[in-house]
Computed example of a mutant assay.
Amino acid sequence: MLPIDREQFVAGVRWWQTRTSWPNDFHNSDYEVLAAQNPDGDFRDSWWAGFLSRLTAWNALRPHSQADVTSRFTEHRDELSRTWHQACAPVKDLDITAVTWDQVRTFPEVVAWLKPTGPDPF
């Protein structure tokens, strides 16, 4: 996944503020809900069904299909769980200001396998 630059970030914020009625803390509050739904990194089919519905509602799968992303989830579920336990579990109760990117970076790298945004990593 490629990082965005400052100009892209500003454009995204501008779009958020002018084209949506979403509250400013939308993602922060949503992340709290998501964390509460899976506080122990237990990536089972029952969790995936609800999470897939949320991703679909966000239009976050495009241009991939639910079947394609679900297949990738199933294929990488064990790695997802293992990486969550290694990277996220040790810091899950810390304030975000006490967590460095290097501590957790492996988890979003594995998550990116579920819906690649560039050339397929495999």
Rank of each mutant, 00 (worst) to 15 (best):
T83W: 11
S53L: 11
G50P: 02
L61S: 05
G50A: 00
C88A: 09
L55F: 00
R62V: 06
P63R: 11
V69S: 00
F43G: 00
D93L: 09
R62S: 10
S81H: 13
S71A: 15
A57R: 09
S53E: 13
S65A: 05
P90C: 08
P90Y: 07
H76V: 05
F51A: 02
D93V: 06
K92P: 13
K92C: 15
C88K: 07
F43T: 03
R44M: 11
L94Q: 12
L52G: 00
A57E: 08
L61K: 02
A57Y: 06
S65Q: 01
T74G: 05
E75A: 14
F73M: 05
W58C: 10
P63C: 07
H64C: 09
R44N: 14
A87V: 10
W47E: 02
T74R: 07
R44H: 12
N59C: 12
L94D: 07
F73I: 03
W58S: 09
F73W: 05
N59I: 10
G50C: 01
W47Y: 05
W58A: 13
H76T: 05
D93A: 11
L52N: 01
W84Q: 03
D93R: 13
A60N: 14
D78C: 07
E75C: 09
S46V: 08
V69H: 00
R72T: 07
S46Q: 09
D42S: 05
P63W: 08
D68A: 15
K92Q: 15
W48L: 00
E75K: 15
S65F: 01
S53F: 11
L52M: 03
R62C: 05
E79R: 15
D45N: 03
L80G: 06
R77E: 00
L94W: 08
W47C: 03
D45W: 01
D93W: 10
D78V: 13
Q86H: 12
R82A: 15
K92Y: 14
S65K: 01
Q66N: 07
D42G: 02
W47F: 06
V69R: 00
H85S: 06
F73A: 03
H76L: 04
R62G: 09
R82G: 12
T70S: 12
R77Y: 00
